[in-house]
Nucleic acid binder design. Structure first.
Lengths: 338, 338
DNA sequence: TTGAAAGCGCTAACAG
DNA sequence: CTGTTAGCGCTTTCAA
């Protein structure tokens, strides 16, 4: 029979105790494996619980124990992006080892939404909050940070407060991509990047520009494209670049979405330009795409580890972990200039 | 100053009320936008709350309101798989519109772990539970289903209890893949599939076999490979198939992981066999891979919708929604037999 | 080994 | 418009 009323009351510990003919506290002890319970009493209580279909009320327990849950929150961008989902997966695995659960929410790259999600998580009394922030200003989190809810920033450094962070060596990775292309003889190198309000994007641009400067090359400058935010835009941007009279001989894309767009733009070219993309992706090996790779799962794992240490009472100064990058040469980045 | 003690007590509503010089209930009313609060009182309370850095204790509220949270749980396989993350994303977006949050946990395809995760979620008093089950037997959930926690099964039908489900037209999709290859003139078609204990895999095999039977073709039989569970295995399996004296002229892979493996195996072939993969994927267009596509985000969205209806009190019999599939021809599935 | 009483922080019910 | 009282289901004293 389906249940009609929404408010089906579940059996409580009191009812279990009554059925077992013991006091509330004894029932509690028995079900929590606490010592000092006679075996026979324990059995009686467990039988009663089974009979009633009793299940512990975690909410009541948490309230009593100090209003703090076994939940850790993650606010990130679109989980559909494999970058975010790999990070989330790394976090979840690490947390689970400590009996913690992960709540996730997408900020849809909207600063207001992000704030309200952070609020919702804090109201749920999460033990820690992991954020891949879309907003620039994180000052509003400062009060919380000092009130016992540890924050860990992923992929983007905290701005306006001091907090633990796990970052990627964006500048270094982009620099080596630039050097890689220079080394293959390229000069006219296009840089296709996302919104510059995101710190990682700025760092990647800086790293790339640094490599160009160091080599005394300025032939890349006409081919700088920023603010390219989705696959379709990236495809069009690269198409346009390649249609120029003097097209670039190489392209560097600063994240996985942009790389996808570039690959689409180059799909039917007999003699495509060189390409390096920041972020590794699933079929890069099959496509022969050279990338700046980094361990996304490790990024999540390290962030979860930092959070767990704080939860466990660690109280040193804010720490920053930097995940290193490496170029994986698969062909596309090694094509010589035409 | 970093906080040293883990148990930093947050200010309570009582303290806010005291500071504002009003009663507990008035403070509660003011902060919850309830009617019947004088504007000046409201302001005083809000100021006091800001001053103390007060934040509502959602746990206490939930306990009082009936021990049911605004959380919906999702237990699924590896979030690293784009299939799961697309589904999760669809769920999360739909739930958010109703003010519900999503808790996720990976079962790592382990039935025991899945059970304990389900337990953990139920103890947290989730409002609904969405499951992409790895286990076969879901009978242990039956009691819960009748106790007010709605279940929705995704991608795999419930076994041993009656519950809402959102499925993919696995048999239909696989059948049309088979027909597509037959139509291109293939007879020796390899079927590479995952663990047959997963219902969707069985359905896909059945659909494919049905197409073969209907066409009176049995030349595929030597090329049936089941139990192939990861990318590496898939790659080796396809390599082995193609190394046979009489190799298959076409390959059908029954999920995205297996398709990836097949693509790796075929990477360097001058004259690869035809290929159709179940599940669309990100760069399939660039690679020219023909797939059986379906809307994974919609799968999640529909599941969340069903759950929300139950949460809102709907109590009809269990419903099943089937997400349709379609072949997207991109070249690999249209290659003729050699 | 067991039990009684108190109270976590909040909201619902009912007065004023 | 505001306050008082009670109690959600559990764990934590403290006492038996």
């Amino acid at each position: 029979m389906p249940v009609d009323d929404v408010t089906v009351r579940r059996p409580t510990l009191t009812q279990v105790a009554a059925l077992a003919g013991v006091s509330l506290k004894t029932a509690s002890r028995a079900l929590n494996q606490e010592p000092n319970v006679a075996p026979s009493t324990g059995r009686r209580v467990r039988d009663a619980a089974d009979l009633l279909g009793y299940r512990l009320n975690g909410i009541a327990r948490e309230l009593r124990r100090g209003a703090t849950s076994a939940l850790v929150g993650l606010v990130s961008g679109d989980l559909t992006n494999p970058f975010y989902s790999a990070v989330a997966s790394g976090i979840e695995r690490e947390l689970r080892q400590h009996g913690l659960l992960l709540i996730t929410a997408n900020n849809d790259e909207d600063a207001m939404l992000e704030r309200s999600l952070v609020d919702a998580f804090l109201e749920r009394r999460v033990r820690a909050l992991l954020v891949i922030p879309s907003a620039d200003d994180h000052e509003y989190l400062a009060i919380e940070g000092n009130r016992g809810v540890p924050f860990v920033f992923l992929d983007r450094p905290p701005d306006g407060l001091s907090a633990d962070a796990v970052l990627i060596d964006n500048a270094g990775g982009a620099r080596s991509a630039g050097e890689h292309l220079l080394g293959a003889g390229h000069r006219r190198i296009a840089l296709v990047s996302d919104l510059v309000r995101m710190a990682p994007q700025r760092a990647r641009i800086d790293g790339f520009v640094g490599a160009m400067r160091a080599a005394g090359n300025d032939a890349w400058e006409p081919f700088l494209r920023t603010g390219v935010h989705d696959v379709r835009q990236a495809e069009r941007t690269v198409r346009d670049l390649l249609a120029l009279d003097q097209p670039p001989t190489a392209v560097f894309t600063t994240n996985n979405r942009l790389t996808t767009g570039a690959l689409r733009a180059m799909r039917e070219l007999a003699d495509p330009p060189a390409l390096i993309g920041f972020d590794d992706f699933d079929l890069a090996d099959v496509l022969g795409t050279t990338v700046v790779a980094h361990d996304m799962t490790a990024l999540g794992r390290e962030a979860a580890r930092l959070a767990y240490e704080r939860i466990s009472g660690h109280s040193g100064p804010a720490r920053t972990i930097v995940i290193s990058t490496s170029i994986i040469a698969r062909g596309s980045g090694e094509r010589p200039p035409r």
